[in-house]
Design a protein around this nucleic acid. Structure first.
Lengths: 360, 360
DNA sequence: CTGTTAGCGCTTTCAG
DNA sequence: CTGAAAGCGCTAACAG
């Protein structure tokens, strides 16, 4: 079944129309009579015809391709690698789902870290593939050169953040906002002595999250952020040692924000070792969600950017744009105006958060 | 730079040769004079010419595409999902590395679980994309219908196991062998009372691993396998409860094989709770490697199938075949004859394994 | 070794 | 609404 040599010509013949008409049906052109359409569709089903992508795009039309651009090393480099990276597996699946349901294909490409070289690389890929859309994954969305290379060719561009206005940082991927919201949530629970342990593989992102944390702490009038930050990016062990030292004195953090799953788990271990009870004596919040957090004892809550979902949505938007259906994903009108300030982040509520103890 | 409308024609003109000659240079044909080649290469570099993939494949030749076929749900469906699945992130990166270095592109496709439907789906993709090679990921490599659909079109096919003979299970992905080797390793450490807790999302794979375990235990004359197996696939909690019950009596396992990271971590927790010391009183071996195992206390050793590596190698083999370079990857001649029986699995040695305690 | 000639399968014009 | 013509950019077949 489904012989591989059936072309649009065969369908045209079978349906007794010209290939143009078949092509129109294929591309959902409205300018086809119902009768013709029916005949063509019957013939297509009958012959098991499947249009050839390459030929399709040769005609100078769409390529039905979405290109996802990764920074080399942005994903887990293998089991045992450091964490704090993109959840490529979930992103892949989310993207695939969205693309295949629309008949599109998803292609990934890794770019090296050298700016000039990576730009050239992208340009090469762009002309070789001429994708209908490109999705730039963090931290690449900030590369203005890449963005203009893409847009300069008239190719649709998306990144993981729904942006409110062009040029603005995408809300869902705003690291500073993530740091802020995490801190704010803890403050709302009554915490003032809040610690922050970084650990992301990408220092730039740590920086921003930390900045958000500092901002909120300062606004709350706490000075804790001057004492309770540790840099797990450099030395994991030292950072933990530092975190450990926090927990011994009488004035100590009542909550700690851990930038990664790894750090969160390690802090939990430290607390256990020291006999500090989580969550009653110490609340713990991770900025990255991984399955293992749910299996920790107690399970650790996480506030995180919804990468996979955002990626899938980015793909969908790209496709919608390519299809020209400007009615499709025009901002789900989710009352996203500017009032409610719905959090763009996902929160996995588990058992590691509690109100601050009274013994402030 | 790198205008997007440069075609082979432009290069031909600039190099003062026919496009055929340019094409030959592009495809590394040996039948080009050094002079011509030089001029063409100069022109290419000069103009920043990049061949268009779609057009290339239209010529009736290669498509420079490798298609990786996944079973829907084979990857992590998102943070918090059950484990025991393919490490898609690492596979993606490994495949991308191998493909891009050869100028190929990697495309993923998910197939539903209904046999007929998934075959049709594959056929569709095959004719739409006409990839140069297809790599079937577990458990799809066992689908004879898919295999013949691919090979019937003359498309190169690979899966994650280096197969010794056609039809034989790939060594690196042989689940029974994994169960056997894990058990054997523990036996070599003097263990006889070995437990096995399943937990994979794919029951068929659990079955095979378990079978390998049973086989070795029986061969060693132990009867432990009649008592110490628990099925974490059904009910995680019950399985753990069962495992827990093992550890209380005086005759109890001195080693436990955990099929997944999740199970391994849980068993470790149980042991800790019960005051059973790992590894001195209980050795623990995971059949799946994840970063979190390395951070457990003590870190948990793992014996596992090298998915990502195998995937990357599969891609490389596909490409080598497409390139016709039959000299390229002809079995690295790693003394793989049939003598040494080098393990096809990877072993992450950590601190959870010890010799069996004397108090057998 | 090199150039010429035909398409690959589809879509864009542009006429009917 | 439909068809005919003219390629898209490249590579296989052939001739030179």
């Amino acid at each position: 079944m489904t012989q591989s040599r059936i072309t649009i010509e065969d369908v045209a013949k079978a349906a007794q129309v010209s290939r143009q008409t078949v092509s129109r049906v294929l591309n959902r052109s409205p300018k086809v009579s119902a009768k013709a359409r029916e005949r063509v569709e019957a013939a297509i089903a009958d012959l098991g015809y499947v249009p050839n992508m390459a030929a399709r795009r040769m005609g100078g039309a769409r390529s039905f391709l979405v290109l996802a651009v990764l920074e080399r090393g942005a994903g887990t480099a293998g089991a045992g690698a450091r964490t704090g990276r993109l959840p490529l597996d979930a992103m892949l699946v989310a993207g695939l789902d969205r693309c295949s349901e629309a008949g599109y294909h998803l292609l990934f490409e890794q770019l090296g870290t050298d700016p000039a070289e990576s730009l050239a690389q992208l340009n090469r890929t762009l002309t070789a593939l001429s994708p209908d859309g490109v999705i730039l994954t963090p931290p690449l969305e900030e590369r203005a050169d890449l963005r203009s290379a893409i847009e300069g060719r008239g190719i649709a561009l998306e990144d993981l953040g729904h942006r409110r206005a062009p040029g603005e940082a995408g809300a869902a991927m705003d690291d500073a906002a993530l740091g802020e919201e995490a801190t704010r949530r803890l403050c709302e629970l009554g915490h003032r002595q809040i610690g922050f342990v970084t650990g992301s593989a990408d220092p730039r992102r740590s920086e921003k999250r930390l900045a958000g944390y500092h901002r909120v702490m300062a606004a709350k009038g706490s000075r804790a952020h001057h004492h309770f930050t540790a840099d797990g990016r450099r030395g994991f062990a030292e950072a933990l040692g530092l975190a450990k030292s926090w927990l011994v004195p009488t004035i100590r953090p009542t909550a700690i924000i851990a930038e990664t799953e790894e750090v969160a788990l390690a802090v939990l271990d430290v607390a256990r070792e020291l006999g500090v009870e989580v969550p009653h004596e110490l609340s713990l919040l991770s900025l990255e969600d991984r399955a293992s957090l749910g299996r920790a004892d107690p399970p650790i809550s996480a506030l995180f950017a919804p990468y996979a979902r955002a990626f899938g949505e980015g793909c969908a938007r790209l496709i919608a744009r390519a299809e020209g259906s400007e009615t499709a994903l025009q901002v789900p009108a989710d009352g996203d105006a500017d009032g409610d300030e719905v959090s763009p982040f996902e929160f996995a509520e588990r058992a590691s958060l509690a109100k601050a103890p009274r013994t402030l």
